[in-house]
């Protein structure tokens, strides 16, 4: 059983307060939607939870069976899909997936790569350079990369950005599957995406 806790989190950029007093506790099977107007700090909160921004106050905790996870365990158990996270344009889709699987500590088989590409609707396009993909295809490939390690913590920032209707359906399927077996945190402004989560955190109020 994994747990993600936020204890009285606050963030300031200089004099400007972005958010304060954010607190929640999520266990495996829980999901949280972070919503709020532009500039309310949704992406900042995601980056703060992932440890890439420092909280001005408060703490974030990643636990498994009430034992805190080490940095390397957190890395191997978390995945992010976001518009500001890019894959390598000069590698093929398959090369990207193989690379990220290896550096995250695993070894992925060609069969698994094919399965993931098929899951996100990129079957037959794995041998193409990512630079030749459309923005929607790149977003789909980010989902394939995020699911390589079957993460216990899945963070999605603007999860359906650049996706067509079929892509949005694929994302809905992925979230439906992972909200049962992982902790899913979604940052979004889309009303229909709020239904991805069982709890809602509203920023900027």
């Amino acid at each position: 059983m994994f747990k993600l806790t936020a204890d009285n989190l606050g963030k300031r950029f200089g004099e400007r307060k972005v958010f304060s007093e954010i607190a929640f506790e999520l266990s495996t099977g829980d999901s949280l939607a972070v919503t709020g107007p532009n500039g309310s700090g949704k992406s900042t909160l995601i980056m703060l939870l992932l440890g890439y921004h420092h909280a001005t106050r408060g703490e974030v905790g990643f636990h498994e069976d009430n034992e805190p996870l080490s940095d390397s365990q957190i890395r191997s158990q978390t995945s992010l899909v976001s518009p500001y996270l890019n894959l390598y344009d000069h590698l093929t889709g398959e090369e990207n997936l193989t690379f990220f699987a290896t550096v995250s500590g695993g070894h992925v088989t060609g069969k698994r790569v094919d399965e993931l590409l098929a899951l996100v609707g990129l079957e037959g396009r794995g041998v193409d350079m990512v630079g030749s993909y459309s923005s929607g295809m790149k977003q789909r490939l980010k989902y394939a990369a995020a699911l390589l390690n079957e993460p216990a913590f899945l963070f999605l920032d603007e999860p359906t950005s650049n996706l067509d209707d079929r892509g949005k359906g694929i994302v809905a399927q992925i979230v439906e599957e992972y909200r049962k077996k992982s902790i899913v945190v979604v940052a979004t402004n889309e009303k229909e995406e709020l239904s991805f989560a069982s709890q809602i955190c509203r920023l900027g109020q």
Binding site: S72, L80, L85
Partner: peptide, 12 residues
């Protein structure tokens, strides 16, 4: 190229 974040999230 914006790939540093993906590398930071996954690699030792």
């Amino acid at each position: 190229t914006g790939t540093a974040l993906a590398l930071k999230l996954t690699a030792d």
